[in-house]
Amino acid sequence: MPLNTVPLTPAELQARANAASAHLPGLILSAERLAAMVAPGAHGLRRAGPGEDFWQYRPATQGDTARAIDWRRSGRSDAQFVRDREAQTAQSVAIWVSNGQGMQFTGGADRPTKAARARLLALALAMVLLRGGEKVGLLGQPLRSGRMQAGRLAEALLTMTAGAGDDDQPDADTLRPGQRLVLIGDFLERPDWLPGVLSRASAMGARGAMLQLLDPDEEAFPYQGAVVFRSVSGAFSHDSRDAGGLRDAYRQRLAERRDWLAAQATGAGWHFGHHRTDHAPAVVLEWLYQVLGD
């Protein structure tokens, strides 16, 4: 079908802009409430330097002043010790949220779509990081600090349009050295692109976390009897007369996929986690924030 090239009138453009931004206040409020459950702080560099957190005791050496000596620790031995603090600095964190059509799935009206939960987690994580002084942005877009960045991210997340297929992938050309990365998707279609992206990121010194986000029906496979399975995009369709008979094989393949994803992440020095849309998001948000500091 040919594309419609008729330009929009100002009224039509305004109407579309209003529709696109209608959910902004709700998303921002929900993300703020969720982010408030996590205590932000600067991430350490795992080495001695300027900072507030204790790093290690070390024997005093020539050049250390009497003021630098920790006399309480030194009093427990015949040597003198200095209390080092851990170096801290602002990080640059890029977040990728899958916009494949498969992310629009929900197995029940009482649950959010995977896309909605992914947007909430991405924005709440960004808010926590921004409060800690980090630079944050969506992968491929400018990473900024400051209070205004949360609003920019909310708008960018809500105006994302679903791709043509059920799955998609991050643009490896947008990776930058030294970044922290967060990849959020369902990873149900085997992501053959993942080893290449992780290898390229590792070569740049970019580490991070992967989060597999699923609807509970995609984990439990509660279907029985005659069921027609169709992907959201319509690219896949399977007519089953005995859906319950597929359950064990499906769960086995899902477990194998999760093991593969975890192995890819571990091999690259990344972290891997998973989350269900019927679970409270605060726990996985805390996990994401903590592993980014490792």
Rank of each mutant, 00 (worst) to 15 (best):
P2S: 01
L3I: 15
N4W: 03
V6F: 04
L8W: 10
Q14R: 14
A15I: 11
R16L: 08
R16Q: 11
A20H: 07
A22N: 04
G26S: 13
G26L: 12
L29K: 14
A31Y: 03
L34H: 04
V38I: 13
G41W: 04
L45V: 06
R46L: 11
R46S: 12
G51S: 06
E52D: 12
Q56P: 05
A60H: 00
Q62I: 13
D64W: 00
D64H: 02
T65Y: 00
A68R: 06
I69M: 00
D70G: 04
R76C: 02
R83I: 02
R83V: 01
E86V: 14
A87Y: 06
Q91A: 06
S92G: 09
A94V: 03
S98R: 09
Q101R: 15
F105E: 00
A116F: 05
R117N: 10
A118L: 01
M127F: 00
G132Q: 03
V136Q: 04
V136S: 02
G137H: 11
L139Q: 09
S145W: 12
R147T: 14
A150V: 06
A154Q: 05
E155D: 12
A156R: 09
T159Q: 11
T159S: 09
T174Y: 08
R176K: 15
Q179S: 06
R180P: 10
L181S: 08
G185I: 10
P195V: 00
A203R: 07
M204S: 06
G205R: 07
A209I: 10
M210S: 04
L213M: 02
L213I: 01
D215K: 08
E219I: 12
V227W: 05
V227M: 03
R230H: 08
G234Y: 10
G234F: 12
S237D: 05
S240R: 05
S240Y: 07
G245F: 00
D248A: 13
R251D: 09
R251Q: 14
R253G: 07
A255I: 11
G269C: 07
F272S: 06
H275N: 11
R276E: 00
A282G: 06
W287Y: 10
L288H: 04
L292P: 10
